[in-house]
């Protein structure tokens, strides 16, 4: 029970160790059972949190998110009307609304944070995990792909954009009437799925299966 998080003793093969990235404490590795997690004794960082059949679930959720991101970017997102005038926008319009001079750079960043980074992360996750789930050798450049996906993690900001929508709606409310397009609801579902996908993904398990393919 305790030896997944037992400090190391003497000489042991290095691939039987796991080291906490936050405090450098080294432990002997034992893969936790279903529902268990290996937690660093010193700083309480979760080191391994595997889930039963996580791979298949993550792939399914990722595919759903990809479809939703594409659909949510093209369908109307919000529209407002006041005194006979109206305006409808998609998420892409919202992201690309900074058009003057240096603000154009901001448009590209915003579009990246709320559409392209989440989309690319999902595609990379599918690319890396499909061979792993099928017990095949890792895909070409799978390591690079997963590295890129992990590096982009803090820059995926769909959930922040969702809260931004709520704030913007309150600001607009006394100016005009707001109507929600289909993309609005798709985006809501998408945010939940992105969070679920993130919770299911155990980084260490993926690295481990890329290093030792076919041995699950």
């Amino acid at each position: 029970m305790s030896d997944a998080a037992t400090p190391i003793t003497g000489n042991m093969p290095l691939d039987e160790l796991i080291v906490c990235p936050q405090c450098d404490a080294a432990y002997r590795l034992r893969k936790p059972e279903k529902g268990e997690r290996a937690v660093c004794q010193r700083c309480h960082k979760v080191l391994i949190a595997p889930r039963h059949k996580a791979g298949k679930q993550i792939i399914a959720v990722s595919i759903a998110v990809v479809v939703l991101i594409i659909a949510a970017s093209v369908f109307p997102f919000l529209s407002i009307s006041a005194a006979g005038r109206s305006n409808a926008v998609s998420i892409l319009d919202a992201a690309l609304s900074f058009t003057e001079g240096p603000l154009l750079v901001l448009s590209l960043l915003t579009a990246g944070f709320i559409i392209f980074v989440p989309l690319l992360r999902m595609l990379l996750t599918i690319y890396v995990l499909v061979p792993v789930v099928l017990d095949r050798p890792p895909a070409r450049h799978a390591i690079r792909a997963f590295r890129l996906s992990e590096a982009m993690r803090p820059w995926s900001m769909a959930e922040i954009f969702a809260l931004g929508c709520a704030v913007a709606l309150v600001k607009v409310a006394d100016l005009a009437t707001v109507d929600f397009g289909p993309a609005f609801w798709m985006f809501g579902v998408l945010v939940v799925l992105v969070i679920v996908q993130d919770g299911y993904l155990c980084k260490w398990s993926v690295w481990n299966s890329l290093e030792h393919p076919k041995k699950s």
Partner: peptide, 10 residues
């Protein structure tokens, strides 16, 4: 993001 949404919408 609030500024982006407002500028596109309004």
């Amino acid at each position: 993001f609030v500024v982006a949404i407002l500028s596109a919408l309004v």
